[in-house]
Nucleic acid binder design. Structure first.
Length: 188
DNA sequence: AAAGAGTCCAACCGCGACCAG
DNA sequence: CCTGGTCGCGGTTGGACTCTT
């Protein structure tokens, strides 16, 4: 039962749990100077008794500039539903299509609200929402080997799912996607 | 007003992928 | 080619908050 060599197991106990404002400040300061890479080094330079992993998570989900928090709009929710239908639980990919949203936030939103919404609709017969129809096990969700190496999903007439040649932070793709999707489903 | 149930969200964990030496 | 270190992702957990009785 030797302790596994793992980032979670350190010689000296690392800080865990909620971040303090002071820790946030130190972390942001170091990242501002050195950039958001080499998380282990950042953690050390900031004088934070935390793992690099923890610092990365904090930065990406909370401190990063341009993060939108809360108030997921109807349009965003709709987009999440559609993207989830297409991509499955690939939260980082979905988040990449929602500027300012984090994978963690979307995942939480899905787990706490949307999945329940969908299962309720399915119980009621689920006819009225196309998103519910194929919410799991859809053949549109490619196996991991096809998705590996990026989000590229070029495949015959699915060419509008090819994410590879677009700036991830543009909303143009979103509108294009919504237009096309609404055409095929005739959503009200 | 208090207690219990339900919900939400920040953070942790484990694992696989990637990369440099 | 192999190995160890690091990073990124998805799943899960625990605590704080809100709602209901």
């Amino acid at each position: 039962m030797a302790p596994k060599k793992n980032e979670a197991v350190e010689i000296k106990a690392l800080n865990r749990g909620a971040w303090t404002a002071e820790e946030d400040r130190k972390l942001a300061q170091v990242i501002e100077i050195h950039g958001a890479k080499r998380w282990k080094t950042i953690a050390a330079m900031a004088g934070l008794n935390r793992s690099g992993k923890s610092c990365r998570l904090r930065w990406l989900n909370y401190l990063r500039p341009n993060i939108k928090r809360g108030n997921i709009t109807d349009q965003e929710e709709d987009l999440i539903l559609r993207l989830h239908k297409l991509l499955g639980n690939r939260w980082s990919l979905i988040a990449g299509r929602l500027p300012g949203r984090t994978d963690n936030e979307i995942k939480n939103y899905w787990n706490s609200r949307l999945s329940r919404k969908i299962s309720q609709r399915e119980k009621r017969g689920g006819g009225e929402d196309p998103s519910a129809r194929e919410s799991s096990g859809s053949e549109l969700i490619r196996p991991p080997d096809q998705a590996a190496g990026g989000a590229t999903m070029v495949d015959g007439d699915d060419d509008f799912f090819d994410f590879s040649n677009e700036s991830p932070m543009t909303l143009e793709w979103v509108s294009k996607f919504l237009e096309l999707d609404e055409d095929s489903y005739e959503l009200s």
